[in-house]
Design a protein around this nucleic acid. Structure first.
Lengths: 340, 340
DNA sequence: CTTTTAATATCAAACGTTTGTGTTGAGTTA
DNA sequence: TAACTCAACACAAACGTTTGATATTAAAAG
């Protein structure tokens, strides 16, 4: 036997009250006497009443729902972030509408459209790699749907953003290797098209300068993050006249590939080359020979800050004068592998 | 200047038509002439009309939304699964309401409640480890909200489920090691409370029997999946009188820990011990010394099948007589590491 | 004894859409 | 030409809830 949800109307009929009274009673409205409030609440309980959210959303024009658009759910960074986001949403009684762009501009555009149709209260977005046109985000402003970008920030002005400052970590990373006695430090970087690659390079160079070391551009090699490409990059570095004794890599995966290759090829016979990478992802814990350190980018904190500021925006009156734009920066931080 | 969404009412006014005509025109209803359909659709375009989903949900009593409750979003298996689920939902114009139970019964219960309030059309659930009472799922039947369980199936009758048959993979795994010449094969299993552990053990034993090998219970050691516990398990196995030359482990992570330990401790001096594990997760690709093979459990396929059957259920008339219960089993499969 | 005030509860509109049932007028049939 | 058909559209109810305006009552104030 299928129960169909009961409504406040039926409660009203049962108690011989008006619908509005029941509604107000359930919300503890002061113009309803405590005695009737009691009665209403109790019979609501007894009748297994549960408010029809669809109706409430509709009538309030608010859904208590937050759209989250991520490039790739299966990536550790993002799945960690979404986990943190969901936790906070859960606590604040918001709901997560999840979607992934697969780093495609088209799909991202369609998802934004869909989110708009679903009347999400706000949006959390980490931009797709291949997105070059950002009109679909600009559009949202007109509809008064706030967006907080995180980790992957588009080059727009007047947006809310949460991101990690890679440079600090980069500098820490190089300093750390210098402290360990290395004087020739290589960098296996990602594709030069990525902003993230630029940041890593900047930090790397800046750290060398700060330490009054001359910067040798041939010690930087790019790769496309694949295993073969990483291996090639490593070989180039190690065939260098002044062979680096330590290498900074774009992320932990690149590090893993490079380390594996360094061990298997004869290029690193005495196993002395030390690696430092970015992300500090769980994979490090499973490696036989992990990098000595990794720059943590705090997916959890980024996710938390992002949804926190979004909720903050949602809960401040729109009537305020100048809309302030949040730009939250989290300092990345070098984490030594043995201290994890 | 903030645009507020326009409605069919306004389109109607502009074209001097009735609301219902506009609605029907937009849906291509046959009782509306093609010429007006054209006109309506065009002006809808021009006016940037977008249907108010909240209103549609409300009036249809359907939300085109599917709730997904997973134990842990940050786990590779589940993030892969949710990724596949989202992809299909996207194609079919459904939306994903995501939540994680963190393997807690209480939270799971609350989430089910929340999903019910949000009037999801259906639910996809992978049950929390610590859930022992399943009333909250039974409840959903009364509200006519279909649930498809996947991967972690509760011990209930008359439910829809999608799961992976571990046994086949287990047998394959042992056979594979036997073919490679091993005659003493250990098993580092998970906590005995997990059904998954039982399945692995069964397959392991069955494979030995099929090959007319005697089963030595002391070659099975349990661990709690942590690194230290894994190391202990490995040490117990390797201190065995008849030292195993190959080891099956509960999953890739356990394998990673064990392999790391085997290399670092002196227990495996000639590095000949071979490992086989479960999950075939990406981490294998990053290991210096990966297990020789891993039993793939197809998170993508499981997710796909799960949402497919849910959509199937949602789109068949409720009026049918006997509700059939789907029980989909996917055969696990051994994947050799070098063939990945 | 009338007028205020405060407390309590009701009325009715509104949110945007879908959909069963009318209504209209032109064309067809006998 | 009267009766009928059918295409093309309009009307209005319904979905469940919230909320501003309004009504009722009784007690307090004048």
């Amino acid at each position: 036997m299928i129960k169909k949800p009961i409504t406040i109307k039926e409660i009203a009929k049962k108690l011989d009250l008006s619908i509005s009274t029941v509604s107000r009673a359930l919300h503890g409205h002061p113009s309803i006497s405590l005695s009737t409030q009691q009665k209403v609440k109790q019979t609501a309980q007894e009748m297994d009443y549960e408010p029809n959210q669809a109706a409430i959303f509709f009538q309030k024009g608010k859904t208590f729902t937050i759209g989250v658009i991520l490039p790739e759910l299966a990536e550790a960074f993002f799945s960690t972030a979404i986990s943190a986001i969901e936790d906070i949403a859960y606590k604040k009684n918001y709901t997560i509408l999840l979607a992934q762009s697969h780093d495609e501009e088209d799909r991202e555009k369609q998802l934004v459209e869909k989110m708009k149709n679903n009347r999400v209260d706000g949006l959390l977005v980490s931009v797709a790699k291949r997105t070059s046109n950002f009109d679909h985000f600009e559009q949202l402003k007109k509809y008064n749907i706030p967006v907080v970008f995180f980790d992957r920030i588009p080059p727009l002005k007047n947006i809310h953003s949460v991101a990690c400052n890679i440079e600090t970590g980069s500098i820490e990373a190089v300093n750390y290797l210098l402290k360990r006695g290395h004087r020739s430090i290589g960098l296996i970087n990602g594709p030069s098209t990525l902003i993230a690659s630029g940041q890593r390079k900047e930090g790397y160079i800046k750290a060398l300068h700060k330490n009054r070391l001359k910067f040798d551009p041939t010690l930087i090699v790019n790769c496309d993050l694949s295993e073969t490409s990483t291996n090639e990059a490593l070989e180039i570095l190690l065939s260098h006249k002044r062979k680096p004794t330590a290498i900074v890599t774009f992320n932990d995966y690149v590090s893993a590939f490079a380390i594996k290759h360094a061990f298997k090829s004869g290029l690193n016979p005495d196993h002395t080359i030390e690696f430092v990478s970015y992300a500090n992802s769980p994979v490090i814990g499973f490696m036989d020979h992990p990098p000595v350190a990794s720059v943590e980018q705090f997916p959890t904190i980024q996710g938390q800050k992002a949804i926190d500021t979004l909720l903050d925006i949602l809960n401040t009156d729109d009537t305020e004068e100048a809309p302030a734009f949040y730009k939250i920066v989290i300092e990345s931080q070098l984490v030594e592998s043995n201290k994890r």
